[in-house]
């Protein structure tokens, strides 16, 4: 039987965010927006969902005088991402043989 894909990660924008955060220590909101091409509103909503699931942490602060939102992946977020990739591989042609 094929493994179930994590519905929280199986969304284009949330998956892109987690993919970026899995490779860096932290990334700010502006960078995530630039890389994903998402609107600020949509990105905020998806970040909230990931935060609620404890996949990422969001820290609001200031860089100089400018407000800055910094996002980090949590250990459980990283675990979920790795599990998601493993599950995806099972869906690829030839994986069930």
């Amino acid at each position: 039987m094929l493994p179930k894909l994590d519905p929280l990660l199986h969304s284009e924008l949330r998956l892109a965010v987690i993919s970026i955060l899995s490779g860096v220590e932290s990334a700010d909101f502006t960078f995530l927006r630039q890389q994903t091409g998402a609107t600020a509103g949509n990105l905020s909503v998806q970040l909230e969902k990931l935060t609620a699931a404890d996949y990422i942490t969001v820290e609001k602060g200031f860089k100089g005088r400018k407000p800055c939102t910094t996002c980090r992946i949590t250990p459980s977020g990283l675990e979920a991402f790795n599990a998601y990739i493993q599950a995806l591989q099972a869906y690829l042609p030839g994986a069930q043989k």
Binding site: G23, V24, E25, S26, A27, D28, F31, K63, C68
Partner: peptide
């Protein structure tokens, strides 16, 4: 380059 993320 303020928005470039911190990385290893």
């Amino acid at each position: 380059e303020a928005s470039i993320p911190k990385s290893e």
